[in-house]
Design a protein around this nucleic acid. Structure first.
Lengths: 240, 240
DNA sequence: TAAATGAGAGAGAACGTTCTCTCTCATTTG
DNA sequence: CAAATGAGAGAGAACGTTCTCTCTCATTTA
């Protein structure tokens, strides 16, 4: 069989500069014998995510994950030292995706539009990983699973706090800027408002409205009303 | 790990056997015997709840629950046929408590006050079971645990849907009445608003603000602003 | 005494993890 | 060039533990 795979360690150890030949480094991306470590890790994480969505962090067994990934336990444990490590990695990835969406808060010059758009973006993103097989609200399930685990698992709690702290900072910065622009009632407690918006957003994400037949367009006025209500903008309909 | 010096068997019932009670079959079913059974079931449920809060539904073992309850497995399995049955019972009890609070929605004649008060009641109740030992946000933990389980466990999902359906009905009835009173913009989509309020409420409950040092009084304007924003009352400050 | 109750051992399955062995293949050696 | 080498990758049995649940038998209760 002429299956040329990427020699990972050869590139690291030997320093032969005559490596201009474009080798077939895409070793059958998710195929039986993929050689690349990152590809294998990705394969495991994808499988584990499916299992965790189906059975929960504690409910899913390593054998279940191995079957889903098409690997043996021996192979899997070459890439992750423990089930706990897989859980932590998946929790981090999931929360990081949320934080990245929130990072776009400061792009808008209008706080009501900013909240509305970022909220919709978040809901859209969280309801999107539902193309392939499996339950329609996989992201919502994972979200709740991570939240539950974070309430009793020290390291998962730390991972969540890291990303959620970033999200709160982003919100606070946007709110502060809006306050200086005069868009927010000066007496508003911004810290509390940030916490409330974050909490309510979590509730919305958790329920996964798009998966229940509520279109994003229907959600738009809800987010807008929430923003108007909580932030009491002094010029509520200026940009609308 | 509190090994409470609880008398083994005889202490749970008062010893006034001198009464000339009818010792018929029915009396046995509904008399002292039945009451003792309820006491034992309650003991198991309380212990199980503590364990589930500490370790999660799947993470807590039956041995852990037995130790917490000060019972042997043989005794425990006399009262509950399976771990699943305990989980279902606890999920039902927890969700029912929420539904009972929501049932007071119709008592208020002002929709903004109604939402504010019921929201505060709910948060207060959910943060109150924190007198004894254990984590401060036991109700929030249980809430998330039940939600997570409901997303992959058919019977727990049915239990949740039962009580949450009641809650949505209650909200919808209050909103409809308010709409007829002219308190809500006629174009508002009440079904969507009910769903949104419920989802955001879940988010607030989940974060358990009182346990994080946010007093209920601080939360009051947040609920009020949320209600005003989402329901757009035509006479927003009438009763304030 | 008969029925109810409970303690505790432990059965049998499933768990997370480790171990051993085989296979593949780039590189080294002859 | 062909054989030898050795390290990475993986399969799958097996390990010790822990799981849920049952069974036996002693004690309590009516």
């Amino acid at each position: 069989m002429v299956d040329q795979a990427l020699p990972k360690q050869a590139a690291n150890i030997s320093d032969n500069a005559a490596d201009d030949e474009p080798r077939c480094f895409v070793a059958k991306l998710f195929g039986k014998r993929a050689r690349n470590r990152e590809v294998q890790e990705e394969r495991i994480l994808t499988a584990a995510m499916n299992c965790f969505i189906r059975s929960g962090f504690r409910g899913a067994s390593m054998n279940e994950i191995c079957s889903e990934a098409g690997m043996s336990p021996g192979a899997l444990y070459r890439y992750f030292p423990s089930k706990e490590a897989i859980i932590e990695k998946i929790a981090a990835t999931h929360r990081q995706q949320s934080a990245e969406i929130l990072a776009r808060m400061s792009q808008s010059n209008n706080i009501v539009d900013a909240i509305t758009n970022v909220g919709l973006d978040h809901v859209r993103k969280m309801s999107m990983n539902d193309e392939g097989p499996g339950p329609r609200d996989s992201s919502a399930r994972l979200f709740v699973e991570v939240r539950a685990e974070s309430m009793r698992n020290e390291s998962v709690a730390a991972i969540c706090e890291l990303h959620e702290g970033l999200m709160r900072e982003e919100l606070l910065a946007a709110f502060s800027a809006a306050k200086e622009r005069g868009e927010i009632d000066p007496v508003t407690d911004l810290d509390l408002t940030v916490a409330a918006v974050a909490a309510m957003g979590e509730g919305i994400i958790m329920r996964n409205f798009p998966a229940q037949g509520v279109p994003l367009e229907a959600l738009e006025p809800v987010f807008r009303a929430l923003a108007v209500g909580l932030l009491r903008p002094t010029t509520p309909l200026a940009n609308k």
